[in-house]
Amino acid sequence: MAFGEVALTAYVPHNFPHDELEPGLDETAFYDPANFTFPGGCHICEVEVDPETGVTEVTNFTAVDDIGRVINPMIVEGQVHGGVAQGIGQALLEGCSYDADGQLLTGSYMDYTMPRADNVPNFKVGTQSTLCTHNTLGVKGVGEVGAIGSPPAVINAIVDALSDMGVKDISMPATPSKVWQTIQNAKASS
């Protein structure tokens, strides 16, 4: 009997002895990987900070990730683009604010800043394929790699740009007003 016939029969309860059999066909299996997969990568970010306004522009961004075997390069590249845009948003723009009474101040996109096309540069994306040894496809996964490497790369680039002033850290999101304030504080303490 062909599998199609089995499936069709399973879903035609009309022919069943109802007191003995319920309609349907299902089976559950659970895959327990032998180990985690370990994608790794390197993200390099170049920024220009306008010291008068505190505006940070990401002028160059290169992401190379080792995600094991690449099955569909176009999907991988798109996934990394989205992830890096999200990471740049997290590093520079996105943040929830509440007032003292607990009222959300960033309740709409008029106040909550999503990254938009003009907030990001043309990305340079590359992959390296060191195959994973404990699954048959040799894949490691590309889900969040773009969003993981990018925030520290952006923040490190800003800190590097401001290091001459003695700046050692800046918290996310490094909004123009926060960068400007950081520069003022650095000037005042030097």
Binding site: T53, S97, S177, W180, Q181
Partner: peptide, 15 residues
């Protein structure tokens, strides 16, 4: 406001 304190705005006006 959450995007800009008054001293930041003052500086931006001159810039």
């Amino acid at each position: 406001d959450i995007h800009a304190q008054s001293d930041y705005r003052a500086s931006l006006i001159v810039t």
